[in-house]
Write a protein that binds this DNA or RNA. Structure first.
Length: 608
DNA sequence: TTAGGGTTAG
């Protein structure tokens, strides 16, 4: 009779290497049989490798192995919890965790306790599958079962979990409790600041790009500096998180700084870093720099293409986006959902209706999948913006899934621009059912009534906002001057240079009138006298930012503004004029896209 | 045995 191998030889047995290479269930069964005949299946370590391989291939098979083990240890459960895959879904991983918790109840089974290897996998699971309630409950368990302080693995995974809940306050409290945080903890907390920004934007804590965005991103950058002063060396993951923070807030100066830092300190310009940089440069208004980086990449994947096509889209370069879309396919890369979204979006921003329709049709042809909600959204936007409202409405009504709020809002926006109250009201009725608490929806409706001089209806909507305690999101603009970000709200007088700014605005307004500008007051929603409406317009946040930049910045340097809302019709018209009068290029990033104002024209060709 | 990466409709 053969004696089972000793535990030390069990760790590097050739059968374990075979296990790693098993790509299907029959070969796994064969190796399993060999493990039994050699006696290796009696040891915990080979069993853990077997379970790990089995959970990759079949949940049922891994369960059958587990059932045959008389007294499975926490170690083995941990292996199963950490192997969430399509074959080993999150519910199964959670059930393994429940078995650990229940272990003491059925005597004579030994009492098991989850350990510090159990929790990082569980938090990752909750983060990946967005199981928020489970995550909170599991955090409470960890406090009960683990001795304080938690190790860095547990703390880091906990930060990452709270990042997806949008609770940056909790992330920060947890991070501040970490003694001597390691690289992973720093990366996680910096990443959490950029991620919370995203989460907040989409779960409606704020529906702005600015606001929280600037605050959270600048805190991410401060944390990065603090990390350097603590002597922790950043890696590529840190760089990616910091670049995203710069992209979110439009902080070009800091973005360029981190780019230099990467080159100077020997961090690898891998596909993750390069893609993040491409996105950052695009979102900070430097499309040329983004393209240079993209062009120099030795290896590009789908995400790099998507980032670059997205860059062309927000800058209104529809044809260049389409060229890249074709090039990508020629290189043998299969477009994914995002590729179609950004390419359609590029068509929409310049009114390439026929090209857009073609791209939409190619979704099924190229990828074999049915268009998703976001693709229908792009199509509706494309049709609506280009004046084909009836077809846009038909698309919404005939699409195979229930239209979401974004889709109705898109249609409403188009109806407002083309003053089509009939379609606008249909869109709004549906929109308010889905999103009764979002202020922007009421503002759109109110503006639409105001545009057709239905003042009673406009003020009824405003009253209804007040009754429901819904505040209008204030317009906000950011301008970066010598690395410092200055923030302006509509009608803001809080800036230390406020007096000079308002003097400058008077000068600007005078010059605009001399150049024959008459305010387009259609976008001001209140029923007030024309003169007052002009006043309300003259203090829109981007005008304060432009005035301040004109006072402060050297002549000839482009002014870069980031806005949280869309540019209004009048601001768009006057910025074109200012670009001529003051001979300045003004680049405005609004909530959706870029406007590059130069010599009296805008890169969007007034299509936005 | 455990954690942390790039793009995405308005």
């Amino acid at each position: 009779m053969r004696l089972p191998p000793s535990p030390s030889t069990a760790h590097n047995h050739p059968l374990l290497q075979l296990l790693r290479r098993c790509a299907d269930l029959p070969s796994l069964r064969q190796v399993h049989a060999l493990l039994i005949t050699t006696g290796l299946a009696l040891h915990t370590f080979p069993l853990s490798r077997l379970l790990s391989a089995a959970s990759r291939l079949s949940a049922a098979y891994s369960l059958s192995i587990l059932d045959r083990i008389t007294n499975p240890t926490v170690f083995l459960f941990n292996i199963l919890i950490s192997s969430a895959t399509p074959h080993h879904p999150p519910e199964l991983a959670l059930s393994h965790y429940l078995r650990i918790l229940a272990s003491g109840r059925g005597l004579p089974a030994p009492l098991l306790f989850p350990n510090s290897f159990t929790y990082p996998s569980l938090f990752k699971l909750c983060r990946t599958y967005r199981l928020l309630d489970h995550g909170h409950a599991i955090h409470a368990h960890a406090l009960k079962f683990l001795d304080p302080p938690f190790d860095h693995f547990v703390q880091s995974s906990l930060l990452c979990f709270y990042a997806i809940t949008g609770r940056i306050d909790i992330v920060r409290i947890l991070f501040d409790q970490i003694e001597d945080p390691d690289l992973a903890c720093w990366n996680s907390v910096i990443d959490a600041y950029t991620r919370c920004d995203f989460v907040n934007k989409y779960i409606g804590i704020t529906d702005t790009v600015g606001g929280n965005s600037a605050e959270l991103s600048s805190e991410a950058l401060s944390l990065f500096v603090k990390m350097l002063t603590c002597g922790v060396r950043p890696n590529e993951m840190t760089a990616v998180a910091v670049i995203i923070a710069c992209a979110n807030s439009g902080a070009l100066y800091q973005g360029k700084w981190i780019h230099r830092y990467i080159l100077k300190n020997g961090l690898k310009m891998n596909v993750f870093v390069a893609t993040a940089l491409i996105d950052m440069y695009s979102k900070c208004g430097c499309l040329d720099l983004a393209y240079q980086l993209f062009d120099k990449m030795p290896h590009r994947d789908i995400l790099s293409y998507n980032a670059m096509i997205g860059g062309f889209a927000i800058h209104g370069h529809g044809h260049r986006a389409l060229e890249l879309f074709d090039k990508m396919k020629h290189e043998g890369l299969m477009p994914d959902n995002t590729t179609f979204v950004v390419t359609l979006c590029a068509c929409s921003h310049v009114g390439l209706v026929e090209e857009g329709r073609r791209v939409f049709r190619s979704i099924k042809e190229d990828s074999g999948i049915d268009p998703k909600m976001e693709h229908y959204g792009c199509l509706v936007d494309l049709l609506g913006r280009s004046g084909q409202l009836e077809e846009a409405l038909e698309t919404v009504q005939s699409m195979p899934m229930k239209p979401n709020a974004v889709l109705w809002r898109s249609l409403l926006g188009a109806a407002r621009v083309q003053v089509n109250l009939e379609i606008g009201e249909v869109a709004l009725k549906n929109l308010l059912q889905l999103e009764p608490e979002i202020s922007g929806n009421y503002v759109l409706l109110s503006n639409m009534y105001a545009a057709s001089s239905r003042w009673d209806d406009a003020s009824r909507v405003r009253q209804s906002m007040k009754d429901h305690g819904i505040d209008k999101v204030p317009g906000m603009s950011l301008v970066e001057i010598d690395g410092t970000i200055h923030e302006f709200l509509t009608g803001d007088r809080a800036h230390p240079n406020s007096m000079e700014i308002y003097y400058k605005l008077e000068e600007i307004n005078g010059l605009l009138q001399e150049h024959g500008h008459r305010a387009r007051t259609r976008t001001v929603m209140f029923d007030i006298e024309e003169e007052e409406k002009e006043d309300a317009l003259s203090y829109h946040s981007e005008r304060l930012a432009i005035a301040f930049a004109l006072i402060t910045m050297e002549p000839g340097i482009p002014i870069r503004i980031t806005k949280n809302l869309r540019v209004c019709e009048d601001c768009h018209a006057i910025t074109k004029l200012i670009s001529v009068i003051y001979e300045r290029e003004i680049i405005v990033r609004d909530r959706i896209r870029f406007h590059d104002f130069k010599d009296g024209a805008c890169s969007c060709s007034d299509h936005w």
